[in-house]
Design a protein around this nucleic acid. Structure first.
Lengths: 317, 317
DNA sequence: CGGGGGCCTGCTCATATGAGCGGGCCTGAA
DNA sequence: TTCAGGCCCGCTCATATGAGCAGGCCCCCG
């Protein structure tokens, strides 16, 4: 891999050839003619140049997206999409803004008129919709109930309505909380016309953007909204992440529990049927949750920031 | 050249493909299969990646030689050889040491048993021979008389003898000054058996290392050793460089003059017949001299340092 | 609504390239 | 000296690649 070449003339020759080939883009045959060598010799020198590290190839671009890291993350985790925003930012609100922009760009690029878009409630998803400036005309389906927190003004309904308006497509939205105290109430809510209507469209959703929380205090809006008993029960069942109301353990298996019945949201099976499910995680604390979500296969697209991306890659090693 | 690509997903896709192609070395067909694209699409994305600057290729190596600069210098000046040592060093003695080492490495690499080596007197050439550790067995021919200066202990005879001993080949050397007061003395000296013997071998020399001075005070050992009148005469004739006793003007034309007859050294025609003539210039003051020497076609190999190399490239632009 | 014009796509076919091979040469050991 | 081993070279032949082209699509303008 690194035995570097021989004498200085050899080195300079190799460098000249590498320049001609890689920088000037000439063919090996042309180079061979120019230097009076056989094309085989040229090919061998080029191999040598690469394997000895004499030629270094970097992939970079001026924007905020770290393409190389994105590509590596995508490949390493087997994702359909990965966008890594290169920022040292740590403030959650500022991060949401940057990731929201990247996710919005991604969404407007990949959503076509044939799609049906599903949106779950999450602050990051809200941040994305706020940055969205154009979108193919598609139906927009609300995937989860809303959580209203004192520190968050937007709610899931606004999010869906706003996106549908921008797109010009139909909106399937409803007013209901994400989690209710008991299964019976949840069942009753699901019977509500608007809710039932939205749910009936879950099967046709082709692309979705979901929230992704680590199952711990301050790492999941759902965790923070739920009673301690239920949280603990799920913890005991091995839950490490919630994907907009779908609980998964470290192996990526969806966890069913009584709590599941109290959630007004798309279920694991329905989510699994969606072609592209994108999450926008940030913060190093979410490493485990992201891994679980990706393992589950439910989430196959990520928009995140470089520190988390690096942590994910490191863990893989 | 720089219109960079479209959406983020597109960008990441392009980056992934570039990684696969350039870093992993897969073929375009393989990549096309992997990404479910036509090979044409892959080729176009790669073209785009390169032309947009997304893929950057650098040529570098850990040693002291700046390969990229060497290759560019060689190409730009149309040289057979160019070795650029990357050093900020300005002290002439230290520079000679470094360049001598590089030149020595070069010489031991390119000299084969079929060659006949010619060596002129010059401090840089002396520095080179001192660094020489191995050499194919070849005859070594002294190309010029010696100049003895109070600050230089080695002389051209030692230089040739030492090299021949190292090589194991025959040495053709003689004791004579580089320049004498009048043409008659020079003629007489050339009749001397050893001198005549060496001169008779000039025609068979295949590789030579020569000195290169800028025709000005302190920029040429020969200039400093010569009487003012002769110096001025050559200046008026447009001489800007002396190549071990061969005078050339800014256009690279060899200048004949009465002074030429007083020099005991290889002449322009003989030097021109040598396959490879290497000089080891240093110091920014020599830019013009190097250009002239290269233009003349007499010198077709350079071992120099990065500041001078850059100056030469700048002038060419 | 109808018709260019530009753009993207994948094709054909000639060319460039890679894998693997056998021959010549150099080196080191007997 | 002779011989075996390793190395470097350039060949053959199958494969990969590039240039240029024609069809289809979308968008914009009339």
């Amino acid at each position: 891999m690194e035995p570097i070449t021989g004498g200085p003339a050899q080195l300079v020759l190799t460098a000249s050839i590498a320049r001609r080939y890689y920088v000037d883009g000439r063919s090996k045959v042309e180079i061979a003619d120019e230097f009076r060598l056989s094309r085989f010799k040229v090919a061998r020198l080029l191999d040598q140049a690469r394997s000895s590290g004499l030629v270094r190839i970097e992939i970079s671009h001026p924007g905020a997206i770290d393409l190389d890291l994105s590509a590596r993350l995508q490949e390493s985790l087997g994702l359909r999409r990965a966008i890594v925003v290169d920022t040292p930012e740590e403030d959650p609100a500022a991060l949401r803004l940057q990731l929201g922009k990247a996710a919005a760009d991604l969404l407007s690029e990949i959503v076509t008129a044939d799609d049906v878009l599903g949106l779950a409630w999450a602050r990051a998803v809200t941040a994305m919709t706020e940055q969205l400036t154009s979108l193919a005309p598609v139906p927009v389906v609300q995937l989860t109930g809303a959580l209203t927190r004192p520190d968050v003004e937007a709610n899931s309904v606004e999010l869906v309505r706003h996106t549908a308006r921008l797109s010009g497509g139909a909106a399937y939205l409803f007013y209901a909380p994400l989690v209710v105290p008991d299964a019976a109430t949840a069942r009753a809510l699901r019977q509500q016309p608007e809710v039932a209507e939205a749910i009936s469209h879950f099967d046709s959703v082709t692309k979705a953007v979901v929230g992704l929380g680590s199952w711990a205090a301050d790492q999941s809006t759902l965790y923070d909204a739920m009673d301690e008993k239920a949280c603990d029960q799920l913890l005991r069942r091995g839950v490490v992440a919630d994907i907009s109301g779908v609980f998964v353990d470290a192996d990526g298996a969806a966890v069913q529990s009584r709590v599941t019945d109290r959630v007004i949201a798309i279920n694991a099976e329905q989510m699994d049927a969606i072609d592209e499910v994108i999450a926008i995680p940030y913060g190093l604390a979410k490493v485990g949750a992201v891994r679980a979500a990706v393992r589950s296969g439910l989430v196959n697209g990520l928009v995140t920031h470089s520190p988390l991306a690096r942590a994910l890659l490191d863990e893989t090693t």
